[in-house]
Each structure stands twice: as C-alpha cells, then as structure tokens.
Simulated assay, not measured.
Amino acid sequence: TTGKPKGVMIEHHGVLNRLQWMQQRYQVGERDVILQKTPFTFDVSVWELFGWATVGASVCLLIPGGEKSPERILETIGRYGVTRTHFVPTMLPAFLDYAEQQPEHELAEQTASLVLVSASGEALPQQHVSRFYQTFGRLNGAGLVNLYGPTEATVEVSYFDCEPDRAYAAIPIGKPVRNTRLYILKEGTEQLQPVGVAGELCIAGVQVARGYLNRPELTAEKFTADPFVAGERMYRTGDLARWMP
C-alpha cells in the first residue's frame, strides 16, 4: 500500500476462523511442516506463525532475508521436509526460474514433501499457474491455491483452487471462506449486482475487523452496516469484482 500505514483492530475470533478454515479445507495435520518466511509486518505471516500450533504440526523458520532468495527457499524445503508454503505472486516466478534450472531428479527430491503452495497479496497471473504445474505438478502433485483478502477482514476471505489442466483468462479469487459473506454491490449503493456485472466487493462475517485504530471517521466510512443481516457490519473494499456465471 501507499501513504501512512493504518492500524487495523483484528479480533481473536476472526483469526481463529481463518486458521481453522485453512486447517479443515486443506487437511493440515501433525505431519505437516509449514515454512515461516513472511516478515511479521505482512499479514500473511499470521497463518505461518500460528497455523501450525493448533494442530500439532511443525514450523520451519527461514533465516532473516531468506524470503528473497529462491536458492535458500528451495534448499530449506528439501532439508526440512516443508509441506506448505506461501508466495507473493511477484516472487513466485523468481522461485520458478531458479527451480527450472535445477536437474529434474534433484528438484524432485528437494520438493518431494511439498503438498500445497498458496499465493496472495497481489493478482495471480495465469502464466504463473501454468508454470507452477509444469514444474511441480508433474513432479510431486503439489497444488496451488489463490487467496484474496484485505487486512481489514483478517488476511484472506476467499480461495480458488487452481487446476493443472485448465486454461484461465484470469485467475478468479474464488469462493468465501467459512463464516464469511461476499457481496457485489452497485457502486455507492446497497443494491446487489446480477451475476456477471461488476460492482464493489464488500465483505461481511466473523473476520471483519473492529475498524481502524484511532481513525473513527475512516472506520465509519469503510465499515458500514450489513444491509442483509441485521446487527452486523461489512467492510467496503473499494475493489471491483463480479460473480462468474
């Protein structure tokens, strides 16, 4: 983001919902090793820092600055048997570039443990998905999931499981996670848009934050009453989206 950083007041039950959804959806268990490589100033680190602990899994801490080194990431995955990791879409192609330069049998050994890679923080280009499955899908069957969400709704609120043999014009942000509602509203109104018609994406449910720290006017502007569920609130993202047919 740009400008002066804003403090967001996230509630514990929102974090727990996000962690438990990930664990249940992707069957995270005690045999998993989660790579913690995201700086704690970035909200994606919440899953890496806490997601392993509630199911008895393990966490592998990448050395400081290692998140910028594809070589270090790949070496760490192989050495510690990492099963799940995350990439910002701009870093994923750099990792793929390095991986594709390795002898195939060595790459297969280093990534034999890898089960799932998630991507979020930016739009995920279609070519990254194709390259991922060409490189890793055929070696070990690892999957790639595209996640979307703002900090104001506890990191991520939707998911899309990318398929290896499907061509996409654009990678969707997918469906809402549990206990979350996504509305597509006509800009400046509370009117739901029909399927296929773009509008402002609004988020409701347990992951919606209390608001901005010491910014009551901005909180009132962005966190408004949910017009479809009495007594609840929604966050107006300002992002344009549409429901796919």
Score class of each variant (00 low, 15 high):
residue 44 V to Q: 05
residue 26 Y to T: 01
residue 39 P to Q: 11
residue 97 D to F: 05
residue 110 Q to N: 14
residue 180 T to F: 00
residue 64 P to L: 11
residue 245 P to V: 11
residue 84 R to P: 07
residue 240 L to M: 10
residue 66 G to W: 03
residue 163 E to V: 09
residue 41 T to K: 04
residue 52 W to M: 00
residue 237 T to M: 13
residue 136 F to H: 04
residue 175 K to F: 14
residue 55 V to L: 00
residue 148 Y to C: 14
residue 210 R to G: 06
residue 236 R to L: 07
residue 54 T to Q: 11
residue 207 Q to A: 03
residue 235 Y to G: 13
residue 124 L to T: 05
residue 94 A to M: 14
residue 72 R to G: 13
residue 163 E to N: 08
residue 83 T to G: 07
residue 46 V to G: 02
residue 174 G to D: 00
residue 124 L to W: 03
residue 243 W to R: 14
residue 141 G to C: 00
residue 119 A to T: 02
residue 121 G to W: 01
residue 185 L to G: 01
residue 157 V to N: 02
residue 21 W to C: 00
residue 2 T to K: 07
residue 36 Q to T: 08
residue 210 R to Q: 15
residue 240 L to S: 05
residue 46 V to C: 03
residue 203 I to N: 11
residue 57 A to F: 01
residue 205 G to Y: 05
residue 110 Q to D: 11
residue 29 G to Y: 11
residue 164 P to N: 15
residue 130 S to Y: 14
residue 44 V to C: 01
residue 131 R to K: 07
residue 163 E to M: 10
residue 63 I to T: 10
residue 46 V to H: 00
residue 131 R to Y: 02
residue 200 E to A: 04
residue 204 A to I: 06
residue 59 V to E: 05
residue 156 E to P: 03
residue 110 Q to F: 10
residue 213 L to A: 15
residue 234 M to I: 11
residue 124 L to A: 04
residue 42 F to T: 07
residue 162 C to R: 01
residue 81 G to Y: 00
residue 240 L to N: 05
residue 91 M to V: 13
residue 13 H to I: 12
residue 139 L to T: 15
residue 241 A to M: 12
residue 167 A to G: 13
residue 74 L to V: 12
residue 20 Q to G: 09
residue 49 L to G: 09
residue 35 L to D: 09
residue 9 M to C: 08
residue 66 G to V: 07
residue 184 I to R: 00
residue 44 V to S: 01
residue 109 E to V: 09
residue 175 K to Q: 15
residue 93 P to A: 09
residue 133 Y to W: 10
residue 175 K to A: 15
residue 48 E to A: 02
residue 146 N to Q: 04
residue 30 E to N: 15
residue 28 V to H: 01
residue 40 F to Y: 15
residue 168 Y to C: 01
residue 53 A to I: 07
residue 55 V to N: 02
residue 50 F to Q: 02
residue 218 L to R: 15
residue 41 T to Y: 06
residue 42 F to V: 09
residue 63 I to Y: 06
residue 29 G to W: 13
residue 19 L to I: 05
residue 203 I to H: 08
residue 140 N to I: 07
residue 12 H to D: 10
residue 243 W to L: 14
residue 49 L to M: 10
residue 210 R to T: 05
residue 55 V to K: 03
residue 29 G to A: 14
residue 87 F to T: 01
residue 157 V to T: 01
residue 143 G to T: 15
residue 160 F to A: 12
residue 221 E to C: 12
residue 149 G to I: 09
residue 242 R to N: 03
residue 218 L to D: 15
residue 234 M to T: 04
residue 244 M to S: 15
residue 163 E to L: 12
residue 175 K to T: 14
residue 202 C to K: 08
residue 198 A to F: 13
residue 160 F to Q: 12
residue 225 A to T: 02
residue 192 L to I: 11
residue 134 Q to K: 15
residue 67 E to L: 11
residue 78 G to C: 09
residue 126 Q to H: 09
residue 62 L to W: 05
residue 223 F to K: 06
residue 175 K to D: 15
residue 213 L to C: 14
residue 54 T to S: 09
residue 243 W to E: 13
residue 130 S to C: 12
residue 197 V to N: 07
residue 185 L to S: 04
